[in-house]
Design a binder for these strands. Structure first.
Lengths: 217, 217
DNA sequence: CCGTTGAAGTTACCGCTGTCAACATCGCCT
DNA sequence: AGGCGATGTTGACAGCGGTAACTTCAACGG
């Protein structure tokens, strides 16, 4: 619609769009430059004028996927209505987890690609980023956990590993349900087990030290 | 050593051995039939006399990987010395988790392959199996959780989703540390965060129902 | 002792992939 | 007008999985 400014149209965007489309329900391994070019009516190698190699295109798709996931979680967070600060903070944490899983299940191809080429290691969250510190799932998780501390639900000394614990649990659940042995669960079973997982996390976060013999090897 | 009974030796086993070797630290995507044949001094296509296609070889490698992981966890379980039944059961659960992660980190390629071709969906655990019900990680996890119930640490009504919760948490931790954004953690950080995760699970399992507003959507 | 048979391995080919190099085209700017 | 640089095309190479037809060789029966 916007006219074709150059030779044959605005590739790059068309390539990225098509790539997202292909990956969404085929996973990263379904992304083939030649087949993409074929589908766009352009000759193979045309893509190399816009991306150094396949990996470069994958990276752009990963950014899109990440943005989509952040968007989905944001929408979920916006729907939280609890008034009581503690309930609200706990609910927000659960919404993040559920949103994460929802994205993983509904856009499983993009989710899988995301974890073969994760855009930015979260260690450098606030470094010199073009990315606001809360605009990736890990940042949102950390914000929610900080809220839990501020609100008094989570003891500050239990805050330290909580981010990894939450992320690991939810991520593992997603992976096992997509490519792992838990695919094939009915949506109802899935929702129930996810609820159980989130409740376990909610309760387990304040882990105190009731395990003296832990330090080993 | 055992002589070469046929044309050129006992392929198949040599193929599987080499495949395990390649996959161990290259992941499933590093497994190429042709390169394997080349390394064994045999012509490509020779493998097709022993495996229908690449996938068939992958499946055999997956079985080996699974056996290796089970073996590792068994060895860890054999080292548990706690006398008190409750402590012992809890310790055994943690050993399973730590063994799972240890295998994932030290044999990451095999671990990754395992979850692109998991041998048997655990739903049919005791069906008509050639596999004893406790001889896969999921079975061992379930046995440990049953122990926790028998010993009184875990309420029977909290038993139901506990398997998925444990598996998801530990699996997610492993994945995030291998291919995900948590690679690059130092071993010490890793051990500390894993300990936190396991403690959170240990505490969170008895999740009771202190979240009335959970039923939604 | 010889010949047949069937398993194991080989050569040749096909289509697919990513990637490099050389060539063609077209808009814009001097 | 002319050229330059961005864009796209054609052609080639290597590597991959997979199929088909051919060859080798050990074992077994007559």
């Amino acid at each position: 619609m916007t006219s074709s400014p150059y030779h044959h149209g605005n590739l790059r965007e068309a390539l990225v769009d098509a790539a997202v489309d292909v990956v969404r329900d085929g996973g990263p391994e379904a992304l083939a430059l030649r087949e993409l070019a074929r589908r766009l009516g352009v000759s193979h190698n045309a893509a190399y004028r816009h991306f150094a190699d396949r990996e470069a295109l994958v990276d752009v798709v990963a950014e899109r996927a990440l943005a989509g996931m952040v968007d989905l979680v944001h929408r979920r967070l916006a729907g939280v209505t609890e008034a009581d600060p503690v309930s609200r903070a706990r609910r927000r944490l659960m919404e993040i987890g559920e949103g994460y899983v929802e994205f993983a299940l509904t856009q499983s191809g993009l989710f899988r690609l995301l974890f073969t080429a994760y855009p930015e290691p979260p260690a450098s969250k606030g470094a010199d980023g073009t990315l606001a510190p809360g605009d990736d799932p890990y940042g949102m998780l950390n914000a929610a956990l900080d809220d839990l501390v501020a609100v008094g639900f989570l003891a500050p000394e239990d805050r330290v590993g909580a981010d990894v614990t939450c992320w690991a649990a939810v991520h593992g659940f997603a992976v096992l349900n997509i490519e792992g042995p838990l695919r094939g669960l009915s949506p109802a079973e899935r929702q129930a087990t996810l609820a159980g997982l989130l409740m376990a996390i909610d309760r387990g976060l304040g882990a105190g030290g009731d395990w003296p013999a832990l330090a080993r090897s």
